[in-house]
Computed example of a mutant assay.
Amino acid sequence: MKAEEFDEKFDRGEDVTSALDMAKAQRPGEEQRRVNVDFPAWMIAALDREARRLGVTRQSVIKVWLAERLEHHTTPAA
C-alpha cells in the first residue's frame, strides 16, 4: 500500500493495522534501557503494597511515579 492510500484510510478511520509490521514498530524516544537501583527493604515493602492495591507490578508503580515527578519538574526544551 502506498503512503497516500495508507494516510487516506487512516484519516477515514479505517483499520490500517494489517499494513503495519508490528514486530518492528517503535515509539520514537521511548527506547527501553535497563537500570539497577538499590532500595531499602521498607521501601520495597511499601512499593509492593501499593502495587498490590493497584493490581499492577512494582516496576509499573516505580515507572509511573518517576514519570509523574519528572513531568512536574522538567521544563520542555525550546
Rank of each mutant, 00 (worst) to 15 (best):
R12C: 11
R12I: 10
I62A: 08
H72Q: 14
V56C: 08
G29S: 05
A19M: 03
V61G: 01
A45D: 06
P40V: 11
K9V: 02
R53D: 04
S60R: 07
R52E: 11
D15K: 12
L66C: 09
V64D: 09
R53N: 05
D7V: 04
P40T: 09
Q26R: 13
A77N: 05
Q32G: 12
T74D: 09
A77Y: 02
R33K: 08
L66Y: 03
M43A: 15
V64E: 08
L20D: 03
E5P: 01
E31Q: 13
M43P: 06
A51Y: 03
A3G: 03
A41W: 10
F39C: 02
I62W: 01
E30S: 12
R69G: 09
V56N: 04
P76R: 09
K2D: 02
Q26K: 12
L47V: 04
V61A: 01
S18A: 14
D11L: 05
R34L: 15
A67L: 03
Q32R: 13
D7C: 10
D21C: 05
V61W: 00
V64Y: 07
A23F: 09
A78M: 08
D11S: 11
R49Y: 13
T17P: 00
L20F: 07
E31Y: 07
A3R: 07
R33M: 05
E8A: 10
M43D: 14
T74E: 11
D38F: 15
W42N: 14
P28N: 08
P40Q: 12
G29W: 02
D38G: 10
I44P: 00
A45M: 04
A23P: 02
A41I: 15
L66A: 10
D15N: 15
D7N: 14
A51C: 14
D48T: 12
E50N: 10
A77C: 05
R12A: 15
A19T: 03
G55E: 02
T17G: 04
T74R: 12
A19C: 03
N36T: 15
A46H: 10
R33S: 11
D11I: 02
L20H: 03
R27Y: 06
R52S: 12
R27W: 04
F6N: 01
R52Q: 13
V35A: 12
I62Y: 02
A19N: 01
R69K: 07
Q32A: 15
E4P: 00
L54K: 13
D15V: 04
F6K: 00
P76C: 07
E30P: 02
A51Q: 06
D48A: 08
F6D: 00
M22I: 10
M1V: 11
Q26W: 06
D15W: 04
I44Q: 11
R69E: 09
R33H: 05
S18R: 09
E68C: 04
F10L: 14
A19R: 00
A45G: 04
H73N: 15
K2M: 03
R34Y: 10
Q32H: 10
V56H: 06
N36Q: 14
K9H: 05
H72Y: 10
R58V: 00
F39Q: 01
A78E: 11
A23R: 13
M43G: 11
L66P: 00
F10T: 07
M22V: 10
A51T: 10
T74S: 14
E4S: 15
E30Q: 13
G55P: 00
V56I: 09
A67R: 02
S18F: 13
L66Q: 02
T75C: 04
D7E: 14
